[in-house]
């Protein structure tokens, strides 16, 4: 009986189209958010670990500190609401909610990734940077060619973790009227007055997504670890 209701709403009333659309938004927001986060995080972490900073770098580092403090200190749902309903109207801008979501999730994950990245950069033996500098490479070149590739190898498991967190946090994106997979199942449940099966299926969907990400991260790790002895 319950199953029949769910199947009817899912297939006959074309609920699956909404679900697939929602799945697409969820994946796009999480994936692009992570990429933006990695870019922002790498930049902030690289500035923060410069040993002797000049005035300009000190200003940049404090801006980075402030940014991390702000975005780690408030929930993502509040950030979405503030940016979409307060900040953008104040600036008189009209941006599609999907783009706002991608940017907000990117900014949010950037705050976390910057700290992950910093620990990764610190985990690389300082001799690697020294060797690069002693051979005559600049600080930036040594960083990008030698230290960052090794740091990324070290933080890959943590970065996978961050992606999983981000993927699940997208479930609140419907606050700013983006239809993600949670919202899609919510409307099926609301339409059919039948809650058990849609929400269980929703949970299974997230489990499946996270499992896929886990496998993908493991494969990537294997690929990156080929410079280690143990393989």
């Amino acid at each position: 009986m319950k199953w029949q209701k769910f199947v009817k709403f899912f297939f006959t009333y074309k609920g699956y189209i909404e679900v697939l659309d929602g799945l697409k938004s969820t994946l796009i927001i999480a994936f692009l958010g992570l990429i933006i986060g990695i870019v922002i995080g790498t930049i902030i972490a690289s500035i923060k670990i410069i040993p002797y900073k000049n005035f300009f770098q000190k200003v940049l580092a404090s801006i980075g500190d402030f940014y991390v403090w702000l975005f780690r200190g408030t929930p993502i749902a509040v950030q979405l609401l503030l940016i979409y309903y307060v900040a953008l109207p104040l600036m008189g801008l009209k941006i599609p909610s999907m783009i706002v979501a991608v940017i907000t999730y990117g900014l949010n994950s950037g705050a976390y990734v910057s700290e992950i990245m910093r620990s990764g950069l610190l985990s690389v033996d300082s001799g690697q940077m020294e060797a690069g500098r002693a051979l005559g490479l600049s600080y930036g070149k040594s960083m990008f060619k030698i230290v960052i590739p090794q740091a990324i190898k070290n933080i890959l498991p943590t970065l996978g973790n961050e992606f999983i967190t981000l993927l699940k946090e997208t479930s609140v994106v419907s606050f700013i009227a983006v239809t993600d997979i949670t919202k899609a199942f919510q409307s099926i449940a609301g339409g059919s007055y039948e809650y058990v099966i849609p929400y269980c299926v929703l949970a299974l969907c997230y489990l499946l997504l996270v499992s896929l990400v886990t496998v993908a991260v493991k494969l990537m790790e294997k690929r990156f670890r080929k410079s280690d002895r143990s393989c």
Binding site: D125, G127, Q128, E130, A131, A134, I146, P149, Q150, S227
Partner: peptide
């Protein structure tokens, strides 16, 4: 100026 270190410091990712 070539330099050789006590801990070798070969680039591990190369």
């Amino acid at each position: 100026i070539g330099m050789v270190f006590q801990q070798f410091n070969l680039f591990n990712n190369k």
